[in-house]
Amino acid sequence: MNSIQIAGASRPYTREHAPVSKSVEGYILIITNLHPETTEDNLYEIFEEYCKISNIHLNNDKQTGFIKGYAFIEIVELDECIELFKIHETEPFEIFGNKLNIDYAFVTNDVNDRKSRSRNGNIDNNDRDLSPIRH
């Protein structure tokens, strides 16, 4: 369940059902459980059939030089993200035999149709609060 139809518009949600937040250039997806030898080309290869990837971050493990096991991809069109998750639900994507975990990376507290969860009643406070007490 990665999207819900509300009055014709589809809203994206994460696996845990948190409303997705759009980033400045598009939607950011996180992919985990990647094989250490995965390359950017592997990612383009399996996803480009369903979506246009506008940015990839595939970070290395500083110690081994192989990739760390996660990647971020940026997709501008929401429809393409939803399509991708639909495919992933029926037949999970794999690279080198590793079944990938994919989800949106950023979420939001949707003020309109979700009550705020914060303890002090603030809806969405972007200011940093104090650091916790150090012992």
Binding site: T14, R15, A18, I30, N101, F106, T108, N126, D127, R128
Partner: peptide
């Protein structure tokens, strides 16, 4: 200063 909410999959990673 930046603050952002991330999904559980990011947390798990």
């Amino acid at each position: 200063k930046k603050e952002v909410k991330v999904s559980i999959l990011v947390l798990q990673e």
